[in-house]
Simulated scan of single mutants.
Amino acid sequence: MKVIGFAGWSGSGKTSLIEKVVAVLAGRGLEVSLIKHAHHTFDIDHEGKDSWRHREAGCREVLISSERRWSLIHELRGDAEMSLEALLLQLSPCDLVLVEGFKHAAIPKIEVRRTVVREAPFYLKDPHVVAVATDVKLDTALPQLDINDAQAVADFVVDYAFRMAAVQP
């Protein structure tokens, strides 16, 4: 599986950009999966639902299945957070995995940067940033992608993941 990340500060537009890029890539026939890092306690289950009740009762894993989808909820119960490498092993095979967050991971990534973001850019110190999706011209030799052009970002992702990464040592 090819892996490329999207990293940026909160409010930079990562999720919106990824949503549009996924639609473009899927429209081209690619099987795309996503791993998203959440910094906060999150819940995909809701209080009162059967699966929530089983989890609250102490289940380590709850797998929910229907004719349309299935989902596995795994409670860490005090264990360490899984690494990106371990999470990648949990995915079914696909053409491309997009990673949102995991800004310190040693994977190629596109920094998502809008003018409203005031924090320091990652690309100045992170050698794994291979491009910047932005709404302003930046002083960098890295490829700069129009954050509002999902087609162009998708083109870069495909080119990087399937061509450029294959020729790098």
Score class of each variant (00 low, 15 high):
Thr15Tyr: 06
Ser16Arg: 07
Ser16Thr: 15
Glu19Arg: 09
Glu19Thr: 14
Val22Thr: 13
Leu25Cys: 10
Arg28Pro: 12
Arg28Val: 08
Leu30Ala: 01
Glu31Pro: 00
Lys36Ala: 12
His37Gln: 14
Ala38Leu: 09
His39Gly: 05
His40Pro: 06
Asp45His: 10
His46Trp: 04
Glu47Ser: 03
His54Met: 13
Arg55Asn: 01
Val62Asn: 14
Ile64Arg: 05
Ser65Pro: 00
Ser66Leu: 08
Arg68Thr: 12
Arg69Pro: 00
Leu72Thr: 06
Ile73Asn: 00
Ile73Trp: 01
His74Arg: 15
Glu75Leu: 13
Arg77Glu: 05
Arg77Trp: 06
Asp79Asn: 13
Glu81Lys: 10
Met82Leu: 15
Leu84Ile: 12
Leu84Met: 11
Leu84Trp: 08
Glu85Pro: 04
Leu87Tyr: 11
Leu88Trp: 11
Leu89Asn: 10
Gln90Asp: 06
Pro93Cys: 01
Val99Gln: 05
Phe102Met: 10
Lys103Ser: 07
Lys103Pro: 03
His104Arg: 12
His104Pro: 00
Ala105Phe: 12
Ala105Ile: 09
Ala106Cys: 09
Ile107Glu: 09
Lys109Ser: 05
Glu111Tyr: 11
Glu111Gln: 11
Val112Arg: 08
Arg114His: 02
Val116His: 02
Val116Asn: 04
Val117Tyr: 00
Glu119Ile: 00
Ala120Gln: 02
Phe122Trp: 11
Phe122Asn: 01
Lys125Pro: 00
Lys125Gln: 07
Lys125Gly: 04
Asp126Glu: 02
Asp126Ser: 03
Asp126Pro: 00
Val130Ile: 15
Ala133Asn: 09
Thr134Asp: 04
Val136Asp: 05
Lys137Tyr: 07
Thr140Ala: 11
Thr140Glu: 10
Ala141His: 11
Leu142Ala: 13
Leu142Cys: 13
